[in-house]
Simulated assay, not measured.
Amino acid sequence: MAINFRKALDRHWTDADSLDRAKRLANADHLFGISAECALKAVMIALGAPTNSDGDLSNADHQKHINTLWSNFRIFAQGPHGARYAAKLGSINPFKDWHVIQRYFGDEHFTAATVQAHRAGAFKAKEVFQLAIQDGILK
């Protein structure tokens, strides 16, 4: 089975959006983080990041979740072909308080404000993804 970050991005964003609208904040928050992660990983691959045989990124620094990957993406994309994508993210990591382990937390841990901040971050990551499509590096 091959990893497909592009299709995973679409699925996770759609589900996150639906859950957010239904006020199911915990799962919406989790999936906004995962969707942002998928968007950035897809762009990294398009920019030439090496992958292994199943399509996953092979560099350990790139195999991170969004709370760490956001900054790692900005470092990776500082080259001549990726700087515009890093700049689009901005300098503040909206996922610094997000962690994959939160999928095990109780609902009381998630607030509308936190989820909206992560939604906005995921939207920025999607904009980077869309820019890569417009530029022709992602098809």
Rank of each mutant, 00 (worst) to 15 (best):
N52Q: 05
K139W: 12
A83D: 00
T68V: 14
L131F: 04
F110Q: 00
A2C: 10
A49W: 11
S58G: 02
F123R: 05
T14S: 12
A83N: 00
F76K: 02
M44V: 06
A87G: 04
L31Q: 06
A86E: 03
D17S: 14
T14F: 01
L57I: 09
A117D: 06
R24I: 12
W98E: 01
R6L: 01
A28I: 12
N67R: 10
T68I: 14
G90C: 11
G48M: 11
F76P: 09
A77L: 04
A122R: 03
D29V: 12
A125C: 07
T114P: 00
K7F: 06
D97Y: 05
T68K: 15
V115P: 11
L25R: 14
W13N: 00
E108L: 11
F110D: 00
P50K: 13
F105T: 02
R21N: 06
D17G: 00
T111Y: 07
A77S: 05
A87C: 01
I101K: 13
L40N: 06
D54L: 15
K88I: 01
I137N: 03
I133W: 04
D10H: 09
V115N: 13
A120S: 15
Q102F: 12
W70I: 13
S18L: 12
V100L: 13
Y104L: 02
F95I: 04
D20S: 14
L47D: 02
K41A: 08
H65S: 07
I92E: 14
R119A: 05
K88R: 12
A8P: 01
Q63L: 03
N4M: 01
L131I: 08
C38L: 01
S35F: 08
A28D: 02
V115W: 06
N72D: 04
I45G: 02
N52D: 14
K126M: 01
K41G: 04
H109F: 15
D54T: 15
R21P: 01
M1Y: 10
D107A: 12
L131D: 05
N93E: 02
H30G: 01
M44E: 05
T14E: 15
S35K: 08
D107R: 08
E37S: 15
D56E: 10
G55S: 07
I34A: 08
L19K: 14
P50Q: 11
H12K: 14
F5G: 00
R21H: 07
L69P: 02
I66V: 10
F129V: 08
G106Y: 02
G136T: 12
A28L: 11
Q102G: 07
I92T: 15
A113W: 01
A132N: 05
S35L: 02
A42H: 03
A122E: 08
D15H: 03
L131M: 11
T111N: 10
H99D: 15
F5Y: 15
A22K: 15
R24E: 08
M44L: 13
G90W: 07
R21Q: 09
I137F: 09
T111K: 11
R11G: 01
I66P: 03
L69Y: 14
H99G: 12
D10P: 00
A2L: 15
A132L: 06
R74H: 13
G48L: 10
T111Q: 11
D61F: 12
F76M: 09
L138Y: 07
I34E: 09
